[in-house]
């Protein structure tokens, strides 16, 4: 990635977070990764203290989002990002264990850019994350502007 894109990783399971981070690093992505283990702290960071999202103006972000969070569902965060004037163009990658077709459909309808199911099989998992890292290294991410 040419511009300094920050990867916001919302993942309540620290083990998963560690595995994801390792595999992204293995694919050669060296961008800053900001981990959040619950929905509230992630929302606070994304939308700032005033909740408008203006705090992130001018930053290029990429959100890695888990749907099953202890305090809220990832779908709520996804909806708020896509409805926010500053953040709506931010790419959101949903990375979750749910492979329910209704859930997947709903995420895409809400504007999610990529939906990936975490495979239990570690090789597939590592492979998927590495490919995602490769994907991160080629996509262009816009800055958050209104």
């Amino acid at each position: 990635m040419t511009n300094p894109v920050s990867i916001i990783m919302v993942e309540d399971d620290e083990g998963h977070a560690r595995l994801i981070e390792r595999n992204i690093r293995r694919s050669g992505v060296n961008n800053e990764i900001l981990p959040f283990t619950d929905g509230t702290s992630a929302v606070d960071y994304l939308f700032g203290k005033d909740g408008t999202g203006s705090a992130r103006k001018g930053q290029a972000l990429l959100v890695l989002l888990d749907l099953n969070l202890p305090d809220m569902t990832g779908i709520d965060i996804l909806r708020r990002i896509k409805e926010n004037a500053f953040l709506k163009s931010t790419p959101v990658v949903v990375l979750t264990t749910t492979d329910d077709s209704h859930e997947i459909k709903r995420c895409y309808e809400l504007g999610c850019n990529v939906y990936i199911t975490k495979p239990v099989n570690y090789e597939s998992f590592a492979n998927a994350i590495r490919q995602l890292g490769l994907f991160f290294s080629v996509i262009k991410v816009p800055e958050a502007v209104s």
């Binding site: 399971d13 083990g15 998963h16 595995l19 390792r22 099953n68 264990t97 975490k118 495979p119 239990v120 099989n121 570690y122 090789e123 998992f125 590592a126």
Partner: peptide
Amino acid sequence: RSPLVNIMGFTSE
């Protein structure tokens, strides 16, 4: 499934 991913992942590690 979630913990299973961890167990499998770190076992592979």
